[in-house]
């Protein structure tokens, strides 16, 4: 794996990113520099601003303030250069789910201007690797969550992007599908591409990522290699809980009625 920590080698550079929704500040001035060629985890509790940040970085949400560069191109000034180089799997947005898995990939690849024959070849291979060949002619609306994530991942990979953004790619995914997704992503980063994914499952991030950014309440609490962020703590989970300031409360006598038979 390349050790691209130099300034010029940043896959994503974010400066002073802000986003408000009415009264609520979702992202409060984020500065980030994500090195290229890494498996990067964006971690944080629910409502930390992970989805908002990823949406702004990928050009799906307009920031109130701030700059975002992906592989050296400004997302809002130079969308032509950026959109061709990124793949995105958003969370909470639908796919064109009235297409079959196969049709969805064909649509997505051709929309990106790839030649039809190439799209069909790549689609067949992706469907095969992601174990979706058997369901390729079923409508995506009838897919399970895991299958949906996998077909979304296939659509995001089809045009061979330099940077892949995945929002909660493992959320609601069964262990078998998760392992498949993992295998594909590991192979993809091994070739020098960058994966940025968000998650709140620390064990997963710890086992997958070599670079981590911790997000809480719309701010970056820590960023760096896994070891740097983990610091002295035994696990990333521990380090994370300390960083976001969550202390395990003693529930001692408050719930003393709980358990031990119905009353």
């Amino acid at each position: 794996m390349t050790q691209g920590a130099g300034v010029g080698a940043a896959a994503v550079r974010v400066q002073g990113l802000w986003k408000r929704f009415g009264q609520q500040v979702a992202v409060a001035g984020i500065d980030l520099e994500l090195p290229a060629g890494r498996f990067i985890g964006l971690v944080g509790p629910n409502g930390a601003g992970k989805t908002t940040t990823l949406s702004m970085v990928t050009g799906l949400l307009r920031p109130d303030q701030g700059r975002v560069e992906v592989v050296g191109h400004d997302v809002w000034q130079d969308p032509v250069a950026v959109k061709a180089r990124i793949g995105v799997l958003p969370e909470g947005l639908r796919l064109f789910d009235r297409l079959s898995g196969r049709e969805l990939l064909g649509y997505s690849g051709r929309l990106r201007g790839l030649p039809g024959a190439e799209v069909d070849k790549r689609a067949a291979q992706l469907l095969d690797v992601l174990d979706l060949t058997g369901a390729q002619h079923k409508l995506v609306v009838d897919y399970s969550t895991g299958m949906r994530k996998k077909i979304g991942l296939a659509a995001a990979l089809l045009h061979n992007p330099e940077v892949l953004f995945l929002d909660e790619p493992f959320e609601g995914v069964d262990p078998v599908s998760a392992q498949t997704i993992r295998g594909v992503l590991e192979r993809y980063t091994a070739s020098g591409a960058t994966v940025v994914f968000s998650s709140h499952v620390m064990e997963l991030v710890e086992s997958l990522c070599d670079w981590v950014a911790v997000l809480a309440a719309g701010r970056i609490r820590a960023q760096g290699t896994l070891d740097e962020v983990r610091g002295g703590a035994p696990t990333l989970q521990q380090a994370f809980l300390e960083l976001v300031g969550a202390h395990s409360r003693d529930t001692g006598s408050e719930l003393d009625w709980l358990g031990g038979g119905a009353r």
């Binding site: 969308p79 032509v80 959109k83 909470g92 947005l93 639908r94 649509y107």
Partner: peptide, 15 residues
């Protein structure tokens, strides 16, 4: 009519 699947369209429109 696209619903939120419009993101797939949005990501392929640069100009």
């Amino acid at each position: 009519q696209d619903t939120s699947a419009f993101w797939m369209v949005a990501l392929t429109i640069s100009t």
